[in-house]
């Protein structure tokens, strides 16, 4: 396990290095002055620009510039937004938690619905249920997300009036920010309307997270189905059958865990996809997350914001990836790789 952790850590550092280099080079690739792109000081006087240039080591070699950029990143100086002149770092801290909340909820929904349905399909292989689930997955996967988002708003918010269509929580509730993750903040707060606020926030997250979850859930259906079919075809399932275990025992004791191991491995990969869907959904549902903020920045050609937002989002995606890797390793003894020879 130690070696596994070290290996992941190594991968993490290396990927962070690449990401920061990418982010740094973006400031050169975007149109306009590099020093303005990187700092966001769009209204500064020539003297002010010169000061900023000194601060970023503009007159040194590229390597030194990159090094200074890294130091700035760690100090929390990510530049200011070109449009609002607010510090990017603060903006990201404000917006990222909402996205974390939305994507994590969506991932959870996608997994707890998609994986069992996929297993059911595999167990009923070559039967009606399997065909039905597969075609459902196909349709679910091909529905465009913006259309689905608008459709759900039309049905559940406007016609039925069951669920709110915009925002993260009703403006009536004032929640003090502690961690940034709203649900946790609500639970931490000492407001007398804590539970109402909690309910309100829950009803706000249902629609957008379900919309985000649909396509990944269909992918999980297919992954889980394939994985379960492979497992059911293995020798150890046959051997368990010969042992005299019932089909249910085989499924619960052996098949599910082994199939799950293979699905978990791919969750990390699917997560990037899910974040992209979440960005679009945030716009539709006016969710105050980093995706919406980033898309707005793209519209406004706010290069500094784009740069910082991309860096933050990709770090987040990568962290989740590593996290799923660890879950995979705890489930799968083969990935942990320690050899022991009794006798």
């Amino acid at each position: 396990m130690l070696i596994f952790t070290l290996r992941r850590l190594n991968l993490f550092l290396f990927t962070m290095l690449i990401l920061s280099i990418l982010s740094f080079s973006l400031s050169f690739l975007f149109p306009g002055e590099q020093i303005i792109n990187i700092s966001g000081q769009i209204n500064a006087t020539p003297e002010g620009i010169e000061l900023v240039a000194l601060e970023y080591g503009k007159h040194e070699s590229l390597i030194t510039q990159y090094w200074i950029y890294l130091n700035q990143l760690f100090e929390g100086n990510w530049g200011v937004s070109m449009t609002s002149q607010l510090p990017i770092y603060g903006e990201i801290l404000n917006h990222l938690p909402a996205t974390i909340e939305l994507t994590m909820t969506a991932l959870f929904i996608a997994m707890v619905t998609g994986i069992p349905i996929g297993f059911i399909a595999a167990i009923n292989h070559r039967k009606k249920a399997d065909d039905f689930i597969l075609s459902f997955a196909m349709i679910g996967y091909s529905i465009p997300i913006f259309w689905l988002g608008l459709l759900t708003i039309l049905i559940f918010s406007i016609q039925l009036g069951w669920l709110p269509s915009a925002g993260q929580i009703s403006l009536l509730y004032e929640i003090k920010q502690v961690t940034g993750i709203q649900f946790i903040d609500i639970l931490l707060s000492d407001s007398p309307y804590k539970w109402q606020a909690f309910q309100n926030a829950s009803s706000h997250i249902i629609l957008p997270s379900c919309v985000v979850a649909l396509a990944p859930a269909t992918i999980f259906i297919r992954l889980a189905r394939t994985s379960m079919l492979n497992v059911l075809d293995t020798h150890y399932i046959k051997a368990a059958m010969a042992k005299g275990l019932t089909f249910q025992q085989i499924i619960y004791r052996h098949a599910i865990r082994n199939a799950l191991v293979n699905v978990i491995r791919d969750v990390g990969l699917q997560f990037a996809n899910l974040v992209t869907l979440a960005m679009v959904t945030e716009v539709i549902f006016s969710w105050p997350g980093i995706g919406r903020w980033l898309i707005e920045s793209i519209y406004q050609r706010d290069y500094t914001a784009i740069q910082g937002g991309l860096l933050a989002l990709s770090c987040f995606i990568f962290l989740v990836h590593i996290l799923t890797d660890f879950i995979y390793a705890t489930l799968n003894p083969l990935a942990r790789e320690t050899h022991r020879g009794p006798q």
């Binding site: 150890y236 052996h254 865990r257």
Partner: peptide
């Protein structure tokens, strides 16, 4: 080896 469940 293939007849033993690798995760149990």
């Amino acid at each position: 080896m293939a007849c033993l469940d690798p995760t149990t």
